[in-house]
């Protein structure tokens, strides 16, 4: 069985760059345009994973394991974040019977 870095290197590096840029921009647009808190949340995850892909690709191409380690850290942080974030969303839903972020405008001035 081939080594995983070798598998990754079967695709040219530029493609990874195009792909994760596209994924990241989709995430940003999703965060900016959607109103449902859960969808916004998913878009944030999308951005994080776009970065993960890029890190893994560079790590393989440069034969440097640091990037992969970084990926694991990001995954762990994302998992923790999801945990807290979803809990907040549940609480929002209980209070507002909705997850629309535009209704959350009481904290001002």
């Amino acid at each position: 069985m081939n080594q995983i870095p070798e598998v990754i290197r079967t695709v040219p590096l530029e493609y990874y760059l195009y792909f994760s840029s596209a994924l990241f921009v989709i995430g940003i647009i999703g965060v900016l345009t959607r109103r449902n808190a859960i969808v916004i949340f998913m878009c944030v995850e999308l951005m994080l994973n776009a970065v993960n892909i890029l890190l893994a690709a560079f790590s393989a191409y440069r034969s440097d394991p640091t990037g992969q380690v970084f990926v694991f850290f990001i995954m762990a942080v994302a998992a923790a974040e999801v945990c807290v974030g979803l809990a907040i969303i549940v609480m929002i839903y209980r209070n507002l019977r909705s997850t629309d972020v535009q209704l959350l405008n009481h904290l001002k001035w």
Partner: peptide, 17 residues
């Protein structure tokens, strides 16, 4: 400056980005 804190989350996100 307090008027910048409008309470609209979408606006915050946009400013952040």
């Amino acid at each position: 400056l307090r008027y910048a804190q409008s309470g609209a989350i979408g606006f915050y996100l946009m400013v952040m980005v």
